[in-house]
Amino acid sequence: MSHDQAHATAGAPQGDDGHEHVGHVVNPKILFATAFALLALTGATLFFHSIDAEDLNIWIALGIAFVKASLVGAFFMHLVWDRPFNLLVFVGCTLLVALMMAFCLMDAAQYRPTQFLGNPPAAQAVLDKDAPGAPIAAQKQITGE
């Protein structure tokens, strides 16, 4: 694949110095249209912000941001015309962030106030007798858990 240059050079004009042309030239009309869509979506997100949709608001805002990000990636960053592997790199790292976020959120949602529920009564009795001053002796059994 590394020497498959057909993709990069197909139909591209020669450079002014006689060298081959590299990369894909994007029609400026597409770029302007993308910018316009981005501005319009910014307006849309402001509009949806002004109506109160309770918990839906963040998902609407994130959905619009996702569409905007895709537009930037696809057209400004040439991903539509680029090698698929570059797209894979980009999507892959985004998925990795999503994975990390999912695990961390899942964990944070289940935090308990304390993991250490105190010394069991037998141990506490020993501590009170032999090491009354030790910090661990102060951790009385938490009742009700």
Partner: peptide, 28 residues
């Protein structure tokens, strides 16, 4: 030149991936 361009571009995309993960940490 094409090979050079492609290499540079892949390198840049990998760098952007690190940027996404760098910011990604803060998003988490």
């Amino acid at each position: 030149m094409s090979q050079q361009f492609d290499s540079a571009k892949l390198g840049m995309w990998l760098f952007l991936a690190t940027e996404v993960l760098f910011f990604g940490g803060l998003f988490v």
